[in-house]
Write a protein that binds this DNA or RNA. Structure first.
Lengths: 265, 265
DNA sequence: CGTATGATTGAGCCTACTCAACTATTGTGG
DNA sequence: CCACAATAGTTGAGTAGGCTCAATCATACG
Protein backbone atom coordinates (compact mmCIF):
# COMPACT_ATOMS: atom_id res chain seq x y z
CA UNK A 1 0.00 0.00 0.00
CA UNK A 2 1.38 3.42 -0.92
CA UNK A 3 0.30 6.89 0.07
CA UNK A 4 -2.15 8.56 -2.31
CA UNK A 5 -1.27 11.81 -4.04
CA UNK A 6 -2.60 14.09 -1.35
CA UNK A 7 -1.12 17.36 -0.23
CA UNK A 8 -0.84 16.51 3.44
CA UNK A 9 0.99 13.26 2.83
CA UNK A 10 3.00 14.42 -0.14
CA UNK A 11 4.53 17.03 2.11
CA UNK A 12 5.91 14.33 4.35
CA UNK A 13 6.48 11.35 2.11
CA UNK A 14 8.25 13.04 -0.76
CA UNK A 15 10.39 15.12 1.51
CA UNK A 16 13.61 13.29 2.27
CA UNK A 17 13.85 10.68 -0.43
CA UNK A 18 14.98 7.34 0.92
CA UNK A 19 13.46 3.95 1.50
CA UNK A 20 13.17 4.27 5.27
CA UNK A 21 9.81 4.27 6.95
CA UNK A 22 8.59 7.38 8.71
CA UNK A 23 9.40 5.76 12.05
CA UNK A 24 13.04 5.13 11.11
CA UNK A 25 13.30 8.66 9.78
CA UNK A 26 11.83 10.18 12.94
CA UNK A 27 14.31 8.24 15.08
CA UNK A 28 17.16 8.57 12.59
CA UNK A 29 17.04 12.32 12.90
CA UNK A 30 18.48 11.98 16.40
CA UNK A 31 20.95 9.08 15.99
CA UNK A 32 22.29 6.67 13.37
CA UNK A 33 20.22 3.52 13.34
CA UNK A 34 22.17 0.25 13.08
CA UNK A 35 21.01 -2.63 10.90
CA UNK A 36 19.94 -4.62 13.94
CA UNK A 37 17.92 -1.69 15.22
CA UNK A 38 16.40 -1.17 11.79
CA UNK A 39 15.29 -4.79 11.71
CA UNK A 40 13.73 -4.55 15.14
CA UNK A 41 11.81 -1.45 14.09
CA UNK A 42 10.72 -2.99 10.81
CA UNK A 43 9.06 -5.73 12.85
CA UNK A 44 6.70 -3.11 14.25
CA UNK A 45 5.40 -2.18 10.81
CA UNK A 46 4.38 -5.57 9.45
CA UNK A 47 0.61 -5.40 9.94
CA UNK A 48 -1.36 -2.65 8.19
CA UNK A 49 -4.75 -1.10 8.56
CA UNK A 50 -6.11 1.69 6.42
CA UNK A 51 -8.44 4.27 7.94
CA UNK A 52 -10.97 6.68 6.46
CA UNK A 53 -11.15 10.36 7.30
CA UNK A 54 -13.09 10.89 10.56
CA UNK A 55 -13.00 7.19 11.36
CA UNK A 56 -13.07 6.39 15.06
CA UNK A 57 -10.25 3.88 15.66
CA UNK A 58 -10.66 3.30 19.36
CA UNK A 59 -12.52 4.87 22.24
CA UNK A 60 -11.63 5.35 25.89
CA UNK A 61 -12.33 2.38 28.10
CA UNK A 62 -11.71 -0.30 25.45
CA UNK A 63 -8.93 -2.87 25.78
CA UNK A 64 -5.51 -1.50 25.01
CA UNK A 65 -3.16 -4.21 23.74
CA UNK A 66 -1.76 -2.53 20.67
CA UNK A 67 0.28 0.46 19.73
CA UNK A 68 0.31 1.91 16.22
CA UNK A 69 2.94 3.26 13.92
CA UNK A 70 1.48 5.86 11.55
CA UNK A 71 2.43 5.01 7.98
CA UNK A 72 0.73 8.02 6.47
CA UNK A 73 -2.16 10.36 7.18
CA UNK A 74 -3.11 12.53 10.15
CA UNK A 75 -4.80 11.36 13.32
CA UNK A 76 -5.53 12.80 16.72
CA UNK A 77 -6.36 11.62 20.19
CA UNK A 78 -9.04 13.37 22.17
CA UNK A 79 -11.08 13.11 25.34
CA UNK A 80 -14.60 14.23 26.07
CA UNK A 81 -15.22 16.30 29.18
CA UNK A 82 -18.44 15.67 31.16
CA UNK A 83 -19.63 19.29 30.90
CA UNK A 84 -19.83 18.88 27.13
CA UNK A 85 -16.41 20.07 26.04
CA UNK A 86 -13.71 18.13 24.27
CA UNK A 87 -9.95 18.10 24.64
CA UNK A 88 -7.85 17.39 21.58
CA UNK A 89 -4.78 15.84 23.18
CA UNK A 90 -2.24 15.23 20.45
CA UNK A 91 -1.94 15.21 16.68
CA UNK A 92 -0.08 12.37 14.95
CA UNK A 93 1.45 12.13 11.51
CA UNK A 94 3.66 9.72 9.53
CA UNK A 95 6.32 8.04 11.65
CA UNK A 96 4.67 8.76 15.00
CA UNK A 97 3.95 5.98 17.44
CA UNK A 98 0.46 6.16 18.91
CA UNK A 99 -0.09 4.80 22.40
CA UNK A 100 3.27 5.23 24.13
CA UNK A 101 1.69 7.54 26.66
CA UNK A 102 -1.00 5.03 27.55
CA UNK A 103 1.34 2.06 27.83
CA UNK A 104 0.77 2.06 31.57
CA UNK A 105 -2.86 0.98 31.32
CA UNK A 106 -4.72 -2.01 29.94
CA UNK A 107 -7.61 0.17 28.80
CA UNK A 108 -7.68 3.19 26.53
CA UNK A 109 -7.81 6.52 28.28
CA UNK A 110 -8.43 8.69 25.22
CA UNK A 111 -10.17 8.25 21.87
CA UNK A 112 -8.32 7.99 18.58
CA UNK A 113 -9.72 9.44 15.38
CA UNK A 114 -8.35 9.82 11.87
CA UNK A 115 -8.36 13.44 10.67
CA UNK A 116 -7.58 12.37 7.10
CA UNK A 117 -7.53 9.12 5.17
CA UNK A 118 -4.44 7.15 6.19
CA UNK A 119 -2.72 3.89 7.10
CA UNK A 120 -1.54 2.69 10.50
CA UNK A 121 0.46 -0.35 11.60
CA UNK A 122 -0.74 -2.01 14.82
CA UNK A 123 1.73 -3.96 16.93
CA UNK A 124 1.35 -5.54 20.37
CA UNK A 125 2.79 -3.96 23.51
CA UNK A 126 4.75 -7.16 24.10
CA UNK A 127 6.84 -6.34 21.02
CA UNK A 128 8.55 -3.66 23.10
CA UNK A 129 10.11 -6.31 25.39
CA UNK A 130 12.71 -7.55 22.86
CA UNK A 131 13.57 -3.95 22.04
CA UNK A 132 14.36 -3.21 25.67
CA UNK A 133 16.41 -6.35 26.03
CA UNK A 134 18.43 -6.23 22.80
CA UNK A 135 18.61 -2.57 21.84
CA UNK A 136 19.55 -0.41 24.82
CA UNK A 137 20.49 2.54 22.64
CA UNK A 138 17.15 2.46 20.90
CA UNK A 139 15.47 2.10 24.27
CA UNK A 140 17.32 5.14 25.58
CA UNK A 141 16.34 7.14 22.50
CA UNK A 142 12.75 6.03 22.85
CA UNK A 143 12.91 7.05 26.48
CA UNK A 144 14.21 10.44 25.46
CA UNK A 145 11.37 10.84 22.98
CA UNK A 146 8.87 10.01 25.71
CA UNK A 147 10.48 12.68 27.88
CA UNK A 148 10.23 15.13 25.00
CA UNK A 149 6.54 14.41 24.59
CA UNK A 150 6.00 15.15 28.24
CA UNK A 151 7.84 18.44 27.85
CA UNK A 152 5.68 19.33 24.87
CA UNK A 153 2.63 18.57 26.96
CA UNK A 154 3.86 20.92 29.67
CA UNK A 155 4.38 23.60 27.04
CA UNK A 156 0.83 22.99 25.85
CA UNK A 157 -0.51 23.21 29.38
CA UNK A 158 1.38 26.44 29.87
CA UNK A 159 0.02 28.00 26.69
CA UNK A 160 -3.49 26.57 26.87
CA UNK A 161 -4.18 27.36 30.48
CA UNK A 162 -2.30 30.63 30.96
CA UNK A 163 -2.05 32.56 27.70
CA UNK A 164 -4.31 34.70 25.55
CA UNK A 165 -6.08 33.22 22.52
CA UNK A 166 -3.55 34.51 19.98
CA UNK A 167 -0.66 33.09 21.98
CA UNK A 168 -2.37 29.73 22.28
CA UNK A 169 -2.91 29.48 18.57
CA UNK A 170 0.61 30.72 17.84
CA UNK A 171 1.93 27.96 20.07
CA UNK A 172 -0.13 25.29 18.35
CA UNK A 173 1.01 26.39 14.91
CA UNK A 174 4.69 26.71 15.80
CA UNK A 175 4.75 23.42 17.64
CA UNK A 176 3.16 21.53 14.76
CA UNK A 177 5.46 23.24 12.29
CA UNK A 178 8.58 22.35 14.28
CA UNK A 179 7.44 18.75 14.37
CA UNK A 180 6.90 18.55 10.63
CA UNK A 181 10.36 19.91 9.95
CA UNK A 182 11.98 16.84 11.53
CA UNK A 183 10.91 14.56 8.71
CA UNK A 184 10.82 17.22 6.02
CA UNK A 185 13.95 19.33 5.94
CA UNK A 186 12.66 21.25 2.92
CA UNK A 187 9.50 22.43 4.66
CA UNK A 188 8.89 26.15 4.22
CA UNK A 189 6.83 28.43 6.43
CA UNK A 190 3.75 27.17 4.67
CA UNK A 191 2.05 23.95 5.74
CA UNK A 192 -1.25 22.20 5.73
CA UNK A 193 -3.27 22.07 8.94
CA UNK A 194 -5.84 19.27 8.70
CA UNK A 195 -8.02 20.52 11.54
CA UNK A 196 -11.13 22.68 11.39
CA UNK A 197 -11.62 25.62 13.73
CA UNK A 198 -13.65 23.58 16.19
CA UNK A 199 -10.80 21.04 16.41
CA UNK A 200 -8.28 23.83 16.90
CA UNK A 201 -10.44 25.28 19.63
CA UNK A 202 -10.60 21.89 21.33
CA UNK A 203 -6.82 21.71 21.13
CA UNK A 204 -6.16 25.04 22.82
CA UNK A 205 -9.23 25.55 24.98
CA UNK A 206 -11.23 28.06 22.94
CA UNK A 207 -14.62 28.05 21.22
CA UNK A 208 -14.74 27.85 17.44
CA UNK A 209 -16.04 31.42 17.43
CA UNK A 210 -13.01 32.74 19.29
CA UNK A 211 -10.69 30.75 17.02
CA UNK A 212 -12.26 32.38 13.98
CA UNK A 213 -11.99 35.88 15.42
CA UNK A 214 -8.44 35.30 16.60
CA UNK A 215 -7.30 33.95 13.24
CA UNK A 216 -8.72 37.02 11.54
CA UNK A 217 -7.03 39.34 13.99
CA UNK A 218 -3.68 37.57 13.58
CA UNK A 219 -4.02 37.74 9.84
CA UNK A 220 -4.73 41.47 9.88
CA UNK A 221 -1.68 41.98 12.10
CA UNK A 222 0.49 40.24 9.52
CA UNK A 223 1.39 37.32 11.76
CA UNK A 224 -0.07 34.59 9.57
CA UNK A 225 -1.88 34.08 6.29
CA UNK A 226 -4.42 31.47 5.31
CA UNK A 227 -4.71 30.05 1.83
CA UNK A 228 -6.46 26.88 0.58
CA UNK A 229 -6.58 25.25 3.99
CA UNK A 230 -2.89 25.93 4.45
CA UNK A 231 -1.22 28.18 6.98
CA UNK A 232 1.63 30.55 6.22
CA UNK A 233 3.70 31.69 9.15
CA UNK A 234 4.26 35.21 7.88
CA UNK A 235 6.14 36.43 10.94
CA UNK A 236 7.51 33.39 12.81
CA UNK A 237 9.69 35.52 15.06
CA UNK A 238 6.81 37.59 16.43
CA UNK A 239 4.70 34.44 16.75
CA UNK A 240 7.46 32.91 18.83
CA UNK A 241 7.65 35.92 21.13
CA UNK A 242 3.89 35.95 21.48
CA UNK A 243 3.84 32.51 23.12
CA UNK A 244 7.42 32.25 24.45
CA UNK A 245 7.98 29.37 22.05
CA UNK A 246 10.79 26.86 22.40
CA UNK A 247 11.41 24.30 19.70
CA UNK A 248 11.50 20.90 21.44
CA UNK A 249 12.06 18.98 18.21
CA UNK A 250 15.12 20.25 16.40
CA UNK A 251 17.61 19.46 19.17
CA UNK A 252 17.64 16.88 21.93
CA UNK A 253 20.30 15.82 24.39
CA UNK A 254 21.38 12.31 23.43
CA UNK A 255 24.91 12.59 24.81
CA UNK A 256 24.09 10.70 28.00
CA UNK A 257 23.54 7.46 26.11
CA UNK A 258 25.28 7.98 22.75
CA UNK A 259 28.52 8.64 24.62
CA UNK A 260 28.31 5.27 26.36
CA UNK A 261 30.18 2.64 24.29
CA UNK A 262 28.73 -0.19 26.41
CA UNK A 263 25.26 0.46 25.00
CA UNK A 264 26.31 -0.44 21.47
CA UNK A 265 27.09 -4.05 22.43
CA UNK B 1 20.77 12.11 57.53
CA UNK B 2 17.30 11.19 58.72
CA UNK B 3 13.96 12.88 58.27
CA UNK B 4 12.95 15.30 61.00
CA UNK B 5 9.82 14.77 63.03
CA UNK B 6 7.52 16.69 60.78
CA UNK B 7 3.95 15.84 59.91
CA UNK B 8 4.38 15.87 56.17
CA UNK B 9 7.33 13.50 56.20
CA UNK B 10 6.18 11.37 59.07
CA UNK B 11 3.15 10.53 57.00
CA UNK B 12 5.30 9.02 54.34
CA UNK B 13 8.36 7.75 56.14
CA UNK B 14 6.69 5.94 58.98
CA UNK B 15 4.09 4.40 56.78
CA UNK B 16 5.25 1.03 55.55
CA UNK B 17 8.02 0.10 57.90
CA UNK B 18 10.97 -1.40 56.10
CA UNK B 19 14.49 -0.41 55.27
CA UNK B 20 13.87 0.35 51.61
CA UNK B 21 14.28 3.84 50.25
CA UNK B 22 11.28 5.72 48.98
CA UNK B 23 12.40 5.03 45.42
CA UNK B 24 12.49 1.27 45.94
CA UNK B 25 9.12 1.41 47.62
CA UNK B 26 7.56 3.45 44.79
CA UNK B 27 8.86 0.94 42.24
CA UNK B 28 8.31 -2.10 44.46
CA UNK B 29 4.60 -1.32 44.59
CA UNK B 30 4.36 -2.41 40.95
CA UNK B 31 6.82 -5.33 40.79
CA UNK B 32 9.22 -7.33 42.98
CA UNK B 33 12.66 -5.78 42.84
CA UNK B 34 15.58 -8.24 42.54
CA UNK B 35 18.81 -7.79 44.49
CA UNK B 36 20.66 -6.71 41.35
CA UNK B 37 18.01 -4.13 40.62
CA UNK B 38 18.07 -2.95 44.23
CA UNK B 39 21.83 -2.42 43.99
CA UNK B 40 21.50 -0.47 40.77
CA UNK B 41 18.87 1.77 42.35
CA UNK B 42 20.89 2.25 45.53
CA UNK B 43 23.66 3.67 43.37
CA UNK B 44 21.33 6.55 42.48
CA UNK B 45 20.99 7.58 46.13
CA UNK B 46 24.61 7.92 47.19
CA UNK B 47 25.01 11.70 47.07
CA UNK B 48 22.82 13.85 49.30
CA UNK B 49 21.82 17.48 49.44
CA UNK B 50 19.51 19.00 52.00
CA UNK B 51 17.22 21.84 51.01
CA UNK B 52 15.42 24.55 52.97
CA UNK B 53 11.76 25.40 52.58
CA UNK B 54 11.25 27.75 49.61
CA UNK B 55 14.79 27.17 48.38
CA UNK B 56 15.23 27.53 44.63
CA UNK B 57 17.18 24.44 43.50
CA UNK B 58 17.46 25.16 39.82
CA UNK B 59 15.96 27.58 37.32
CA UNK B 60 14.99 27.17 33.68
CA UNK B 61 17.82 27.64 31.23
CA UNK B 62 20.60 26.32 33.48
CA UNK B 63 22.63 23.24 32.62
CA UNK B 64 20.76 20.02 33.19
CA UNK B 65 23.15 17.13 33.92
CA UNK B 66 21.57 15.69 37.03
CA UNK B 67 18.38 14.03 38.09
CA UNK B 68 17.29 13.84 41.72
CA UNK B 69 15.74 11.20 43.91
CA UNK B 70 13.66 12.77 46.66
CA UNK B 71 14.68 11.30 50.02
CA UNK B 72 12.15 13.27 52.01
CA UNK B 73 10.27 16.56 51.83
CA UNK B 74 8.01 18.16 49.24
CA UNK B 75 9.15 20.00 46.13
CA UNK B 76 7.52 21.31 43.01
CA UNK B 77 8.50 22.34 39.51
CA UNK B 78 7.03 25.49 38.00
CA UNK B 79 7.34 27.79 35.04
CA UNK B 80 6.76 31.51 34.77
CA UNK B 81 4.54 32.79 32.00
CA UNK B 82 5.50 36.07 30.26
CA UNK B 83 2.16 37.75 31.03
CA UNK B 84 2.95 37.47 34.72
CA UNK B 85 1.32 34.20 35.63
CA UNK B 86 2.94 31.05 36.91
CA UNK B 87 2.31 27.38 36.18
CA UNK B 88 2.95 24.86 38.93
CA UNK B 89 3.81 21.80 36.88
CA UNK B 90 4.24 18.90 39.27
CA UNK B 91 4.56 18.18 42.98
CA UNK B 92 7.19 15.71 44.20
CA UNK B 93 7.51 13.78 47.42
CA UNK B 94 9.70 11.02 48.90
CA UNK B 95 10.71 8.38 46.35
CA UNK B 96 9.95 10.49 43.29
CA UNK B 97 12.56 11.03 40.62
CA UNK B 98 12.83 14.64 39.52
CA UNK B 99 13.94 15.36 36.00
CA UNK B 100 12.79 12.34 33.99
CA UNK B 101 10.55 14.53 31.92
CA UNK B 102 13.37 16.89 31.00
CA UNK B 103 15.87 14.15 30.17
CA UNK B 104 15.61 15.15 26.53
CA UNK B 105 17.29 18.51 27.01
CA UNK B 106 20.65 19.72 28.19
CA UNK B 107 19.12 22.76 29.85
CA UNK B 108 16.38 23.03 32.44
CA UNK B 109 12.97 23.88 31.08
CA UNK B 110 11.25 24.49 34.42
CA UNK B 111 12.27 25.75 37.85
CA UNK B 112 12.54 23.52 40.89
CA UNK B 113 11.66 24.76 44.36
CA UNK B 114 11.37 23.08 47.74
CA UNK B 115 7.95 23.53 49.34
CA UNK B 116 9.21 22.17 52.66
CA UNK B 117 12.57 21.40 54.20
CA UNK B 118 13.89 18.19 52.68
CA UNK B 119 16.72 16.10 51.26
CA UNK B 120 17.38 15.13 47.64
CA UNK B 121 19.94 12.81 46.03
CA UNK B 122 21.43 14.09 42.76
CA UNK B 123 22.75 11.60 40.23
CA UNK B 124 24.03 12.12 36.68
CA UNK B 125 21.94 11.30 33.61
CA UNK B 126 24.68 8.95 32.49
CA UNK B 127 23.84 6.68 35.42
CA UNK B 128 20.73 5.65 33.50
CA UNK B 129 22.85 3.96 30.80
CA UNK B 130 23.87 0.93 32.90
CA UNK B 131 20.27 0.56 34.04
CA UNK B 132 19.06 0.32 30.47
CA UNK B 133 21.78 -2.15 29.56
CA UNK B 134 21.62 -4.47 32.56
CA UNK B 135 18.09 -4.18 33.91
CA UNK B 136 15.53 -4.44 31.11
CA UNK B 137 12.69 -5.16 33.54
CA UNK B 138 13.49 -2.08 35.55
CA UNK B 139 13.80 -0.11 32.35
CA UNK B 140 10.40 -1.30 31.22
CA UNK B 141 8.88 -0.37 34.58
CA UNK B 142 10.54 3.01 34.46
CA UNK B 143 9.17 3.42 30.96
CA UNK B 144 5.72 2.57 32.23
CA UNK B 145 6.03 5.13 34.99
CA UNK B 146 7.01 7.76 32.44
CA UNK B 147 3.92 6.85 30.44
CA UNK B 148 1.82 7.15 33.58
CA UNK B 149 3.19 10.61 34.26
CA UNK B 150 2.20 11.67 30.78
CA UNK B 151 -1.29 10.34 31.36
CA UNK B 152 -1.53 12.26 34.62
CA UNK B 153 -0.46 15.37 32.76
CA UNK B 154 -3.23 14.84 30.22
CA UNK B 155 -5.70 14.47 33.08
CA UNK B 156 -4.41 17.71 34.51
CA UNK B 157 -4.72 19.46 31.17
CA UNK B 158 -8.26 18.16 30.87
CA UNK B 159 -9.25 19.39 34.30
CA UNK B 160 -7.30 22.62 34.29
CA UNK B 161 -8.28 23.82 30.87
CA UNK B 162 -11.85 22.55 30.60
CA UNK B 163 -13.47 22.26 34.00
CA UNK B 164 -14.99 24.56 36.58
CA UNK B 165 -12.97 25.72 39.57
CA UNK B 166 -14.41 23.18 42.00
CA UNK B 167 -13.69 20.32 39.59
CA UNK B 168 -10.13 21.50 39.09
CA UNK B 169 -9.46 21.59 42.78
CA UNK B 170 -11.19 18.25 43.31
CA UNK B 171 -8.92 16.75 40.68
CA UNK B 172 -5.79 18.16 42.27
CA UNK B 173 -6.74 16.83 45.69
CA UNK B 174 -7.75 13.38 44.50
CA UNK B 175 -4.70 13.01 42.30
CA UNK B 176 -2.31 13.95 45.10
CA UNK B 177 -4.13 11.68 47.52
CA UNK B 178 -3.99 8.69 45.15
CA UNK B 179 -0.27 9.27 44.77
CA UNK B 180 0.37 9.35 48.49
CA UNK B 181 -1.48 6.08 48.99
CA UNK B 182 1.13 4.19 46.95
CA UNK B 183 3.82 4.58 49.58
CA UNK B 184 1.47 4.80 52.53
CA UNK B 185 -1.11 2.06 52.57
CA UNK B 186 -2.48 3.29 55.88
CA UNK B 187 -3.29 6.75 54.59
CA UNK B 188 -6.80 7.88 55.49
CA UNK B 189 -8.91 10.50 53.75
CA UNK B 190 -7.00 13.14 55.65
CA UNK B 191 -3.66 14.41 54.39
CA UNK B 192 -1.37 17.38 54.51
CA UNK B 193 -1.23 19.71 51.52
CA UNK B 194 1.98 21.75 51.68
CA UNK B 195 0.84 24.42 49.23
CA UNK B 196 -0.74 27.79 49.91
CA UNK B 197 -3.76 28.99 47.95
CA UNK B 198 -1.64 30.95 45.50
CA UNK B 199 0.35 27.78 44.72
CA UNK B 200 -2.87 25.80 44.31
CA UNK B 201 -4.17 28.45 41.96
CA UNK B 202 -0.97 28.26 39.94
CA UNK B 203 -1.41 24.49 39.76
CA UNK B 204 -4.95 24.57 38.39
CA UNK B 205 -5.13 27.90 36.60
CA UNK B 206 -7.07 30.02 39.07
CA UNK B 207 -6.33 33.16 41.10
CA UNK B 208 -5.76 32.82 44.83
CA UNK B 209 -9.06 34.66 45.35
CA UNK B 210 -11.03 32.10 43.37
CA UNK B 211 -9.26 29.26 45.16
CA UNK B 212 -10.32 30.72 48.49
CA UNK B 213 -13.94 31.17 47.43
CA UNK B 214 -14.06 27.73 45.86
CA UNK B 215 -12.61 26.02 48.93
CA UNK B 216 -15.22 27.71 51.10
CA UNK B 217 -18.01 26.68 48.75
CA UNK B 218 -16.79 23.07 48.65
CA UNK B 219 -16.57 22.99 52.41
CA UNK B 220 -20.10 24.30 52.84
CA UNK B 221 -21.33 21.62 50.44
CA UNK B 222 -19.74 18.93 52.59
CA UNK B 223 -17.23 17.83 49.97
CA UNK B 224 -14.11 18.60 51.97
CA UNK B 225 -12.99 19.93 55.34
CA UNK B 226 -9.91 21.92 56.25
CA UNK B 227 -8.13 21.59 59.54
CA UNK B 228 -4.62 22.65 60.61
CA UNK B 229 -3.33 22.89 57.07
CA UNK B 230 -4.64 19.42 56.33
CA UNK B 231 -7.36 18.43 53.93
CA UNK B 232 -10.10 15.92 54.68
CA UNK B 233 -11.85 14.39 51.71
CA UNK B 234 -15.28 14.26 53.30
CA UNK B 235 -17.08 12.93 50.24
CA UNK B 236 -14.50 11.32 47.93
CA UNK B 237 -17.16 9.78 45.72
CA UNK B 238 -18.84 13.07 44.88
CA UNK B 239 -15.44 14.69 44.42
CA UNK B 240 -14.58 11.96 41.92
CA UNK B 241 -17.79 12.51 39.97
CA UNK B 242 -17.21 16.25 39.99
CA UNK B 243 -13.99 15.95 37.99
CA UNK B 244 -14.45 12.54 36.31
CA UNK B 245 -11.50 11.26 38.31
CA UNK B 246 -9.53 8.14 37.42
CA UNK B 247 -6.87 6.83 39.75
CA UNK B 248 -3.72 6.41 37.64
CA UNK B 249 -1.61 5.20 40.56
CA UNK B 250 -3.21 2.19 42.20
CA UNK B 251 -3.09 -0.07 39.15
CA UNK B 252 -0.83 -0.18 36.11
CA UNK B 253 -0.48 -2.68 33.30
CA UNK B 254 2.87 -4.41 33.76
CA UNK B 255 1.88 -7.68 32.07
CA UNK B 256 3.55 -6.79 28.78
CA UNK B 257 7.01 -6.98 30.35
CA UNK B 258 6.53 -8.98 33.55
CA UNK B 259 5.17 -11.84 31.46
CA UNK B 260 8.34 -11.97 29.38
CA UNK B 261 10.83 -14.43 30.95
CA UNK B 262 13.62 -13.22 28.67
CA UNK B 263 13.71 -9.89 30.48
CA UNK B 264 14.76 -11.46 33.76
CA UNK B 265 18.08 -12.70 32.33
C1' DC C 1 4.47 43.44 70.31
C1' DG C 2 5.27 44.30 65.50
C1' DT C 3 5.91 42.20 61.13
C1' DA C 4 5.22 38.99 57.46
C1' DT C 5 2.60 35.70 55.29
C1' DG C 6 -1.69 33.81 54.12
C1' DA C 7 -6.81 33.74 53.79
C1' DT C 8 -11.21 36.04 53.27
C1' DT C 9 -14.57 39.14 51.40
C1' DG C 10 -16.50 42.98 48.50
C1' DA C 11 -16.82 45.77 44.13
C1' DG C 12 -16.34 46.45 39.44
C1' DC C 13 -14.55 45.01 35.05
C1' DC C 14 -13.28 42.40 30.99
C1' DT C 15 -12.81 38.55 28.22
C1' DA C 16 -14.28 34.68 26.03
C1' DC C 17 -18.56 32.27 26.10
C1' DT C 18 -23.27 31.11 24.09
C1' DC C 19 -26.84 31.93 20.95
C1' DA C 20 -28.07 33.03 16.51
C1' DA C 21 -28.06 34.53 11.81
C1' DC C 22 -25.70 34.53 7.72
C1' DT C 23 -22.08 33.41 4.07
C1' DA C 24 -18.91 30.29 1.72
C1' DT C 25 -17.52 25.97 0.21
C1' DT C 26 -17.88 21.22 -0.80
C1' DG C 27 -20.12 17.12 -2.03
C1' DT C 28 -24.05 14.40 -3.83
C1' DG C 29 -28.09 12.71 -6.11
C1' DG C 30 -31.59 13.61 -9.52
C1' DC D 1 -25.18 19.96 -14.95
C1' DC D 2 -27.72 21.87 -11.51
C1' DA D 3 -30.07 21.97 -7.01
C1' DC D 4 -29.89 20.93 -2.55
C1' DA D 5 -27.74 19.46 1.70
C1' DA D 6 -24.05 19.36 4.77
C1' DT D 7 -20.04 21.24 6.65
C1' DA D 8 -17.19 25.11 7.79
C1' DG D 9 -16.34 29.81 8.72
C1' DT D 10 -17.80 34.71 9.88
C1' DT D 11 -20.02 38.28 12.40
C1' DG D 12 -23.17 40.54 15.90
C1' DA D 13 -25.38 40.87 20.56
C1' DG D 14 -25.79 39.86 25.16
C1' DT D 15 -24.12 37.28 29.26
C1' DA D 16 -21.50 35.22 32.95
C1' DG D 17 -17.66 33.81 35.35
C1' DG D 18 -13.26 34.58 37.03
C1' DC D 19 -10.06 38.35 37.12
C1' DT D 20 -7.91 42.52 39.48
C1' DC D 21 -7.82 45.77 43.03
C1' DA D 22 -8.26 46.65 47.67
C1' DA D 23 -9.43 46.29 52.45
C1' DT D 24 -9.78 43.34 56.38
C1' DC D 25 -8.95 39.37 59.30
C1' DA D 26 -6.02 35.38 61.08
C1' DT D 27 -1.93 33.16 62.25
C1' DA D 28 2.97 32.40 62.98
C1' DC D 29 7.36 34.07 64.23
C1' DG D 30 11.25 36.79 65.87
Amino acid sequence: MSAPDDISTRQVCDSDENKDSGLVRKLGYYMDITDLERDLLAGLETAERSVRANEEIFVGGGRNDNLFVVKYGWLYTYSNVPDGGRLLVRVYDAGDVIGMSTLAFDHHIVNLRAATEGCICPFPKTALGPLMKDAPRLTALWFTLAAREETVLVDTLRATSRMRPDSRIAHLLLSLHARLRITNSRLTDRFRLPLNQTDIGDAVGLSNVTVSRTFSAMESKGLIERCDGEIILTDPKKLGQLCDFHDRYSKMDTSWFLGDPALLA
